[in-house]
Design a protein around this nucleic acid. Structure first.
Lengths: 194, 194
DNA sequence: ACAAATAGTTGACTTAAATCAATTGAATTT
DNA sequence: AAATTCAATTGATTTAAGTCAACTATTTGT
């Protein structure tokens, strides 16, 4: 179960057998069943979760109860409310499982301890956050520059795997569009291809 | 001129006098006059810039010539096209100076060398990117969840200093709104306060 | 395998914000 | 200080996408 974690770390840094033992000792594993919550908006986010298997989503909810999906996290990626995790403030996001999932959790205290004990982990997370930042920035710019149709097309091109695992209404939410709009776009695009 | 850089680094990590000498040696300083470009969309971004004084903006342009401002970078912050800088691919953004500015530049090769020579710098950038990521995520969610009026109000509350240094049409662009809309919102809000 | 819950489609209608254009006002440049 | 460029305002109009609602199709849990 830790293999997938080490594989991902080793894409960015080299680890000795000893490093791996140490790293292992900072994580605890958890099974999160479909629809169960990892984090509830308003609570402090105590864990950063590496998804070893399954799929999570994080979202927030406005006064009217509308859900805004912020991120999907499949195997090999990390999920948390970073603001809450690093500042201990109440979380803005709720995180739950879209599929039965296996997680490796680390607390914020242990995150700190781990990076101090193994400085390479700072490098790993520097590279991880750097890449996430590039992706988020792209998404933000797209949200301003692209039409609904272009957003939907880009998502299909860049994340076909996700598109097949996630209900269309959640993709709509992720794109900042209404389910009706995405349904119409899907039809339009399939007609355009004929 | 390096003092402001060191102050910022020392908010996140401790530096010895020796560290500072080494760090200094990796940067070159540059004066960038108002309206001059640091980076042109389509070129590779060779530098990451620490703004010691002044104010930069980064933006991209669509086929129709519309500009979409992506970030303002005042003193004490970093500017670059991160994707281009770290991957050597052509940049998506253009970066220019809104005010006469003083920059400290580091090349991507030297960035790599510096983090390898002083691992604490990985920690610094881990923390920097971590915070940027939190901010970008907030902006992304706001772009979906908030109305034009709420976006504008939040910007005023959170960044009054910027609001006073940046022309209103660029703030509009940064918020993903048209200049006309921002002008109307400004009027509406001032009336609401009476 | 069935019932219940959830998701997707489609039409009619609304709406927030964009666009266009004319005018006024402010800042830079020479 | 005048000229020129750039920024802001405001009204009239358009438009992309949202909302609402009724219906159908698909998934999920028991």
């Amino acid at each position: 179960m830790y293999n997938i974690l080490f594989e991902h770390l080793e894409e960015k840094i080299n680890l000795s057998a000893g490093d791996k033992e140490i790293i292992k000792s900072y994580f605890i594993s958890k099974i999160l069943k479909r629809k169960k919550l990892l984090l509830q908006e308003g609570n402090v986010c105590h864990y950063m979760a590496f998804v070893a298997q399954g799929l999570l989503k994080s979202y927030n909810t406005d006064e009217k109860g509308n859900e805004y999906v912020n991120q999907f996290t499949p195997e090999g990626w990390w999920a948390s409310d970073m603001n809450s995790f690093f500042s201990m403030q109440p979380a803005n996001y709720t995180i739950d499982a879209l599929e039965d999932s296996v997680l490796l959790l680390i607390t914020s205290q242990d995150f700190e301890n781990l990076t101090l004990r193994i400085p390479k982990m700072d490098r790993y997370f520097r590279l991880l956050f750097q890449n996430s930042l590039i992706t988020k920035e792209r998404r933000l710019v797209n949200s301003y520059m692209l039409s609904a149709e272009e957003k939907y097309k880009q998502l299909i091109e860049s994340s076909l795997n996700l598109v097949n695992r996630v209900p269309q209404n959640l993709l709509a939410s992720y794109l900042g569009l209404s389910p009706a709009t995405v349904s119409r776009l899907k039809k339009k695009i399939s007609l355009d291809h004929k």
